[in-house]
Design a protein around this nucleic acid. Structure first.
Length: 381
DNA sequence: CGTCCACGTCTAC
DNA sequence: TAGACCTGGACGG
């Protein structure tokens, strides 16, 4: 799945499960995937992975000299060296909304396994790129996408945006001016202060690093399916009691407290009653069959989308709608959030671990809108 | 059953 | 800057 730390965890997972393993044969693509074929074939090769931000790179490396039996018909010239040997190959993946890697028995491939690498052993096993929604992409001979931002985890020093979601850039920059420390402190005191009062940028690094060290996300050792642990760790996203707003791109931003002066107006988190009341379209049969704007494939999915965009326009009217409870409980498709809410709401709740307490208290004084929820929760503890 | 929603890009107007 | 690209879970009727 797509969060930055998860991509990194996926690369760790791949390197762990593929360590010492020999893969063999062709790389297999599902019929339904529109991603490119991976014309790689080797009797014996190894797989390794690296990550950078929200991309992951697999490297397929053939072992020593082996003769490729195929004449190379239909294969790109570059795939094979002059003597017909399979060259190493890099594949760069983006996960879209639902991509992940799984290593399973080849006999029972997971659903939506769109790219498969088979082991040489028997019974065969398969490293699979699994992606239910198929928004994920891969590129053969891929490189890191050149115009992406730096990796929050591994290129932190290059990460210099300094803008909370709905704050004026001016305010942020001026606040940083006032953070200047007195120069007469010892170095160790300065470092300690910095750690106890991390700014937004440090949090951009520290929070994903926390996730990495937590492990799990389906990439943990064995079947420690600790989605629950992750949900427990989340302190703002999807936690009842936290607030959310849609930004200009329709993305839901979760936070606690004030949204900041540049918060989008009239874009409360969608609560069903709000927009249902404002829906300008009468509940007539017409609604179910809007004329698609673009002429095209006319797939059923497209009809759905057209239907929805009709709704979207209606939602602009929610401004005056009752919203007192809007942030109370409308949560996305998560079942276990209630549990989290119970512990979240209770001021007597103990911090799960001393380490976490320390980490969290270190975040206490940031003014960052997105970061604040984590620290404020700690205040309540 | 229908509707809404989801951790992200892409690209066509 | 909308819409497109997709599947599936939750929820409401």
């Amino acid at each position: 799945m797509p969060e930055g730390p998860e991509l990194h965890l996926a690369s760790c997972y791949i390197n762990t499960v593929c360590a010492g393993l020999i893969f063999s044969g062709k790389v297999e693509k599902s019929e339904v995937s529109k991603n490119p074929e991976v014309l790689f074939e080797s009797d014996a090769y190894v797989i390794s992975a690296t990550s950078r931000g929200k991309e992951i790179k697999l490297t397929l490396t053939p072992l020593k000299e082996e003769k490729n039996t195929l004449p190379g018909r239909g294969r790109d010239r570059e795939e094979l060296s002059q003597n017909g040997l399979q060259q190493p190959m890099d594949l760069v993946f983006r996960f879209g909304m639902s991509g992940s890697f799984k290593f399973t028995s080849a006999a029972e491939l997971p659903k939506h396994a769109h790219l498969r690498f088979y082991t040489k052993e028997s019974p065969h096993r398969a490293l699979c790129f699994v992606d239910c929604r198929r928004f994920g992409r891969w590129e053969v001979h891929g490189t890191w996408q050149p115009d992406r931002g730096p990796c929050v985890m591994l290129e932190y020093e290059k990460f210099r945006l300094k803008i909370p979601p709905f704050e004026n850039a001016r305010t942020v920059l001026e606040a940083l001016q006032h953070r200047k420390q007195s120069p007469d402190l010892t170095l160790s005191k300065k470092v300690k202060l910095k750690q106890e009062n991390p700014d937004l940028l440090e949090l951009c690094h520290a929070v994903p690093m926390e996730v990495i060290h937590m492990g799990g996300m389906g990439y943990g050792p064995e079947h420690s399916d600790d989605a629950a642990a992750f949900e427990e760790w989340l302190q703002c996203y999807c936690v009842p009691g936290m607030r959310s707003l849609r930004d200009g791109n329709g993305r839901t931003i979760w936070f606690q407290g004030e949204p900041g002066p540049m918060a989008p107006k009239g874009k409360k988190s969608r609560k069903k009653h709000s927009w249902v009341n404002a829906d300008p379209e009468p509940p007539s049969p017409k609604v179910t069959k809007p004329v698609p704007k673009r002429s095209s494939k006319g797939s059923s999915s497209q009809e759905k989308v057209a239907k929805r965009s009709g709704r979207k326009k209606g939602k602009e009217l929610i401004q005056g709608a009752e919203n007192a409870k809007a942030h109370e409980a409308r949560k996305p498709n998560t079942r276990s959030r209630r549990k989290a809410s119970a512990s979240q709401a209770s001021p007597t709740n103990k911090a799960p671990a001393a380490d976490r307490k320390r980490q969290a208290s270190a975040r206490r004084s940031t003014g960052a809108v997105t970061a604040a929820p984590r620290s404020r929760r700690v205040k309540a503890e």
